[in-house]
Computed example of a mutant assay.
Amino acid sequence: MTKIHSLSGQQRLLQLARNQFGSGVMPADNATASNTNQQQGHFADKHQQLAARSGAASGQAGLTLAQRAERRLQMQRERQQHNLERVMTLALEYCPEHVSAQDIDPDWFQQFCELILDISNHSMQQLWAKILAGEIATPGKFSLKTLHTLKRMSYKEAMALQQAANLSCRPRQDPTARIYFGYIHRPSLWRVLTGRNRAVLNLSQFGLSYTQILSLVDIGLLHSSEIESGELPAGHQINWQYQQLSVNGSITSKNVVLQYYKYTASGAELLPLLSTQPNQQYLDALKLLLADVINFA
């Protein structure tokens, strides 16, 4: 593939589209929206709509079984082509002006195209479009493992990832995001007697249920076990970046262990694609929970 170093992000995407399926990408204004609201109807109406989409609608009595099968396959190919072109069109909206001079890996792009053929949900298409735009800007940014993980993700799981993202922060010294939820004081006789050796935050109060956490673990976006920081000494400085907010403090006693959920490599790659909003109630509750062991500035 010939490299053209002066291409913008959108020009690079249009070139990829022409090479992949022989035509350009429709302008966003002319593209058919895939998230059209459907009117509520009776069960029979919805059943007929689904049957029509599957290619098994009634009214084909004059066709042979082979002809009906061919019609279904043709409808499937058209739907897949529509999905492919829709993601390409959406990617134009996210392409930066300046991109790497390095070309996108053709094998990566081929697998990307195969994986999006059956993605019809508009929100999921947007995620795939952002991935393509990010890969054009910085080839190698998204691994094939991450693509296959996203392929397995349902819209419900994508919403769980969004909720998790809203509660995620990054320590300044570690770029991997995490979700803090509690602490442990390594046992001492006094703490065993008083019972004040552990505190845990219920994340479901802030939109992230334990069921959602398990689903993110199951598809490989969160590590399967809760992570512990290791014992932090008294005076250890805490510097977290929570969305646009800086959270600073210092450990006030020895033998403190912070607990959190940590993203896998695939989860860390997908997280920046989401638009997040800080949850002030979560931040306030976390600070209150940790007030016994951390003095926040």
Rank of each mutant, 00 (worst) to 15 (best):
L245G: 05
L203H: 07
Q244M: 12
E269S: 11
Y210T: 05
S229L: 12
N248T: 11
A268W: 03
V217A: 07
G235W: 05
H223I: 11
S229H: 04
K254S: 15
Q212G: 02
N255D: 12
G235R: 05
S229A: 09
G235Y: 07
A265N: 13
I251Y: 08
T252S: 12
P233G: 11
E226T: 13
T211L: 06
V256I: 14
T211M: 01
V217N: 06
N197A: 11
T252D: 04
E228R: 03
Q244E: 15
A268T: 09
T211D: 02
I238L: 08
S266I: 01
G267R: 00
W240R: 02
S250I: 12
E269A: 07
V256S: 10
L214P: 00
N239S: 11
W240I: 10
G220C: 06
L232P: 09
Q205D: 12
E226P: 03
S266H: 03
T211C: 03
N202Q: 04
L270W: 06
V200L: 09
G249F: 08
G230P: 09
L216N: 05
G207T: 04
Y242F: 08
I238M: 11
Q243H: 11
Q259R: 15
E228G: 04
L208N: 00
Q243W: 04
T211P: 00
V217S: 07
I251G: 03
R198A: 11
V247E: 12
L222S: 03
V256A: 12
Q237I: 13
Q205T: 05
S204Q: 10
Q259L: 12
N248I: 04
Y263K: 06
G267Y: 02
S209N: 10
D218I: 01
E228W: 00
S229N: 13
L214D: 11
G207L: 03
T264S: 08
A199E: 09
Q205N: 15
N239Y: 09
I251L: 13
N202M: 01
N255Y: 10
K254E: 15
L203Q: 05
S215K: 15
V256P: 03
P233S: 14
R198Y: 08
I238D: 00
V200P: 00
A234K: 15
G220W: 06
I251D: 04
S215H: 15
G230A: 13
I227Y: 03
S204E: 13
Q241Y: 13
Y260R: 08
I227L: 01
F206C: 01
L216R: 08
S209A: 04
G220L: 04
T264Q: 02
E228Y: 01
Y260E: 07
S215G: 14
S250R: 15
T211V: 03
A265K: 12
Y260W: 14
S253E: 13
Y210D: 07
L216E: 02
Y261T: 06
L270V: 08
G267Q: 00
V256H: 07
T264L: 04
E228A: 09
G230N: 14
L258I: 11
G235M: 10
S215Y: 15
A265G: 05
K262W: 03
